[in-house]
């Protein structure tokens, strides 16, 4: 487990604005994410949640404002292994892709290992451990396309874990997954956060569920409002308040 300092910010966003074809999507957003955080970002469809995530993941680069990742300006940030990403993919990938669960999880290790290097026994051990953590080791030779949505999402979590990150971003991870699998999934996230000290940022439109799971909530609809506790957050207020 990481030695946590909950006062240490690993993501610092100051006055971030992002526009797409003259349409303002993110407006002057400021937000800090600390070590060991479990932050939920909620908001209606089209509110800019995925855009914010893509900016933080360096997939979108033409923004205004300042972002620091682990104390380094995002434009100079190179320590990619510290951050992992679980895309909205459980029901949204090519189910005909010829890859076994183990092959998919191994992919998360490739960048860490570097160009021109093959995976070695240490990598295989890390891959085994990650599969164990998400309880998918017995399925390792199964084709990824044969899994249920919940199982596939666990595999993508394992793929994120093998790069041994400190921070994981998850984009709508439970979309298209049944209730029982969602419960297991949130249990797994809580374990990663509380027992392994991983910082998690979860983007979801499922506001009701998220308020029961996360440490802090940020409500985004072009503007961002931060709530120190989910109890402070009132969904009704936001959806009835024209200000947002």
């Amino acid at each position: 487990m990481l030695k946590l300092n909950h006062h240490h910010n690993i993501v610092e966003i100051k006055k971030l604005s992002f526009a797409y074809k003259s349409q303002l999507i993110l407006n002057q957003i400021s937000l800090n994410i600390h070590q060991g955080d479990y932050l939920g970002i909620v908001g209606p469809n089209g509110a800019g949640k995925t855009t914010l995530l893509k900016v933080l993941l360096r997939l979108l680069t033409s923004f205004q404002g300042q972002i620091k990742l682990f104390g380094v300006d995002i434009k100079d940030f190179k320590d990619y292994s510290k951050i992992s990403y679980v895309p909205q993919q459980a029901t949204n990938f090519d189910t005909n892709f010829p890859a076994t669960v183990r092959e998919v999880v191994s992919m998360g290790r490739y960048a860490r290992r570097g160009l021109f290097h093959r995976l070695d026994s240490q990598d295989f051990k890390i891959i085994d451990n990650s599969l164990e953590q998400v309880k998918m080791r017995e399925y390792q030779q199964e084709l990824i396309g044969n899994l249920s949505g919940g199982q596939a999402q666990r595999v993508f979590i394992a793929r994120a874990l093998v790069s041994q990150p400190e921070l994981i971003f998850l984009d709508e991870p439970t979309t298209g997954i049944d209730q029982a699998s969602q419960d297991d999934f949130y249990k797994l996230l809580k374990n990663l956060n509380q027992n392994m000290g991983l910082s998690l940022v979860l983007v979801s439109h499922d506001t009701a569920r998220l308020t029961r799971e996360v440490m802090h909530i940020a409500y985004l609809d072009k503007f961002l409002t931060y709530y120190n506790s989910p109890n402070d957050f009132s969904t009704e207020r936001h959806f009835s308040d024209n200000k947002y």
Binding site: L59, K78, A99, Y110, L119
Partner: peptide, 23 residues
């Protein structure tokens, strides 16, 4: 042979491969 594992990753999930730091 040199780039096999990286090509597999970008073929399966281009976005995640980019986030992981692959060029």
């Amino acid at each position: 042979l040199l780039f096999f594992k990286e090509l597999v990753f970008i073929t399966f999930d281009e976005e995640a491969a980019q986030v992981s730091g692959l060029p």
